[in-house]
């Protein structure tokens, strides 16, 4: 379960261009929910997602993952959470361009605290689940946008995290490919994963069980 309580995020704190991106945001997302976070550009939705992914800090408030207070965690523990509890999918795929598909998918397995013996098999299974097992050895810079996003999803799920966070996952894709990618997210959600998708596309948002709108750094009720 994810629980945020009065989270505040300020950029350029103390400088002339100080900007409060999130203003006392509180929300709870239960396990297995599929949630869309919507809002205009600059509303703070990506900031919220990055805080949830433990790749950005916050000034005030409390953030719990499975009853664990994130603020008190060490850098090492945070890395462990990013590795084992959270899978991240970005609009621009965030793949290592010169690596092959399988090399990209292997990364979370390589960084895992508990090393698994059958890493290649697990990576191949993850690629298979997104229909990319046939291109495992192909460098990702030779793939189409849709294929890259599939590889990104395979990488996000390979360690079997309970939460998948997606930042505009269909933003760079055509409608047909977007539908295929959303299909994959639905499948993951059906398998019990908590999915949080940041989007400004209402068509995508409407496919999620819950929609949270952010406006000027606050959740709009």
């Amino acid at each position: 379960m994810i629980k945020l309580s009065d989270i505040r995020k300020i950029y350029n704190k103390g400088k002339s261009n100080e900007f409060e991106a999130l203003k006392e945001v509180s929300l709870t997302i239960n396990d297995g929910e599929m949630t869309a976070v919507i809002g205009k550009s600059g509303a703070g939705k990506s900031t919220l997602l990055h805080i949830l992914a433990c790749i950005d800090s916050y000034e005030d408030g409390e953030y719990y993952i499975d009853d664990m207070l994130v603020k008190n965690l060490s850098e090492k523990k945070l890395a462990e959470i990013r590795n084992s509890k959270i899978g991240m999918v970005m609009q621009d795929y965030a793949l290592v361009d010169d690596f092959s598909c399988i090399e990209n998918v292997l990364l979370p397995l390589d960084f895992a605290k508990n090393k698994k013996a059958n890493k290649t098999e697990l990576a191949m299974n993850a690629l298979k689940s997104v229909g990319m097992d046939g291109m495992a050895k192909k460098p990702v810079n030779k793939l189409s946008g849709g294929q890259k996003q599939r590889v990104a999803i395979a990488r996000a799920v390979v360690n079997e995290p309970s939460i998948i966070l997606a930042d505009e996952p269909t933003g760079a894709l055509d409608s047909k490919t977007s539908a295929e990618i959303m299909g994959l997210f639905h499948k993951l959600n059906e398998n019990g994963k908590t999915i949080i998708i940041v989007t400004h596309d209402m068509e995508i948002a409407n496919q999620c069980g819950r929609i949270i709108e952010i406006f000027d750094g606050k959740i709009k009720f």
Binding site: A53, A79, E80, R82, N83, F111, R155
Partner: peptide, 15 residues
Amino acid sequence: TNYALYYICGLTWKM
């Protein structure tokens, strides 16, 4: 950029 990607995948900055 790749270091940041590794970070997302569970690597610390130190590593």
